[in-house]
Design a protein around this nucleic acid. Structure first.
Lengths: 169, 169
DNA sequence: GTAAATATGTGCGTAGCGCACATATCTGGT
DNA sequence: ACCAGATATGTGCGCTACGCACATATTTAC
């Protein structure tokens, strides 16, 4: 394989993430995995502290403190979970609003880089990225991790597989 | 413009940077902008603290402390600059070695994601990314920032322009 | 009914960074 | 030659984001 393409994708990815993270920090006033946490909790699948920890790739205590910050910012509430041990994380009204701003800011940041391409070029690029993602060997948890900033309002059919390995049943 | 492509590129960029940053942390034992600093200093254009600050997008003091860390790790040396105010940053032998490991780790991380594409698909993708980057309106400093992790051993002709705006002469 | 597993919270330390301030050198105008 | 402003670096101090080790509560399995 030729390495030029890897370097180009690395540079583009850095530029994309710089812009996304800058926008996210402006919207929620926090960095690190905090913006992603807000988005993930907003997916609303009865998120718990421990699931969040795995998706974000943080330590347990780091996740607890992250949720502490979101709670002190009045963006998230801790409610009793089904299981008596679990905590069910829910967005407040203000949390939902911040999350929507966050998603809009992210799409806008990436779009500003993409708009120099023609409509046909963007279609080509979309097809290639979709293929690239679809052929990765990702577990369900990997998928949540990669998609932890994704906009569920525009990403209807995610190309990522959820069945890593797929050896037998 | 359709937003699906922006979301896809955002997700891919996140996956790419996750892998690059994880590898970088394993190689140099440090996170944040420290790996990028090591690469930038290695370009060897008589790097100073202040130029580095602008490229990395950090505060002045943050940059001084970052260099302190690199010096205490024996990867960088502070030498007197041409101008009596400036400090000339130079990699030590061990710094050069770490930088090479860092670059190799980055290329390897991105390549592992790309190798599911056919050779023809990779060529298409390279062409599209090259076009996307070439048409951005970037200043020379923007270029250094975007390329702060780039592998100068494989990136021969960078597509990024260096003449932002280009109003008048 | 007790041991192991699961889920959360806490004390404590560290890395990475910014703000405000201090210091040293260079530049330009008189 | 001199002095004000610009330029470049270093420092005191605090904060955010995070991990490790430990403590606690609940559930599951034998």
């Amino acid at each position: 394989m030729e390495n030029g393409i890897a370097n180009l994708l690395g540079a583009l990815s850095l530029a994309v993430m710089d812009r996304i993270e800058q926008g996210a920090r402006e919207v929620v006033g926090r960095g690190g995995e905090t913006p992603a946490a807000l988005i993930v909790i907003g997916y609303g699948q009865g998120m718990t502290n421990d699931k969040l920890r795995r998706i974000l790739g943080l330590s347990h205590s780091g996740t607890v403190r992250l949720v502490d910050r979101l709670v002190s910012d009045r963006l998230v509430e801790r409610r009793p979970g089904k299981d008596g041990r679990e905590v069910a994380l829910h967005l407040t009204a203000s949390g939902v609003a911040s999350r929507n701003e966050l998603l809009a800011s992210r799409i806008s940041a990436v779009t500003s880089l993409l708009e120099v391409l023609s409509s046909a070029e963007r279609k080509q690029l979309a097809t290639l990225i979709r293929a690239l993602l679809a052929r990765q060997d990702t577990s369900e948890m990997d998928r949540f991790t990669i998609c932890r900033m994704c906009d569920d309002r525009v990403c209807t059919n995610c190309p990522l597989p959820t069945n890593k390995g797929q050896h037998g049943h």
